[in-house]
Design a binder for these strands. Structure first.
Length: 153
DNA sequence: GCCAACGTTGGC
DNA sequence: GCCAACGTTGGC
């Protein structure tokens, strides 16, 4: 059982979109970074906890809680020439990118990036490190507990 | 829109 | 394998 922070641009997929999806579940596709892919491929397991983070928006921060509900499978958008995620070097025989299904647990109040930076128990979070821009980053159990506690009520 | 930081590409 | 050039991310 691990914990993750996953970034999504709310203009693309927001926490509201996830909660409005059938079974509150959405396919996480479009990851085109090897480090993030490897986290999904090698470490994620069904039941892992997810901090759903809104990025590239007026108020970035954690907007909800979610969980991993599938094992990895090929990301269909890599084969779609009309997709912005198309990858000419990927083939169905040798896929390069993967998807995983994420189920929203609940929308929370926004724990903004600015507020996160004021919490000393979170200062080691990967996402808060200078220059960090990975879309999927590991979260420690202690960090998870701190955040979930802050988001209770 | 700016720009720091990081990742990828491709010539050599 | 090096590394310059270029592209992307994402907060501000």
């Amino acid at each position: 059982m691990r914990y993750w922070l996953m970034k999504s641009e709310p203009d693309e997929v927001s926490i509201d979109d996830v909660m409005a999806s059938p079974r509150q579940t959405t396919a996480w596709f479009g990851v085109r970074n090897y480090q993030a892919r490897n986290f999904m491929r090698d470490q994620m397991q069904v039941g892992d906890g997810v901090l759903f983070y809104h990025s590239s928006c007026p108020e970035p921060g954690i907007a909800g809680l979610a969980e991993i509900v599938s094992t990895p499978y090929p990301d269909a958008s890599q084969f779609d020439a009309n997709s912005k995620y198309y990858d000419a070097k990927a083939t169905p025989e040798q896929p390069r990118w993967i998807s995983i299904d994420v189920k929203g647990t609940r929308k929370t109040r926004l724990l903004s990036l600015a507020e996160m930076r004021t919490i000393s128990a979170l200062e080691e979070m990967v996402v808060l490190q200078k220059g960090s821009r990975l879309s999927i980053t590991p979260v420690t159990p202690a960090q998870w507990k701190t955040i979930v506690t802050l988001l209770k009520e």
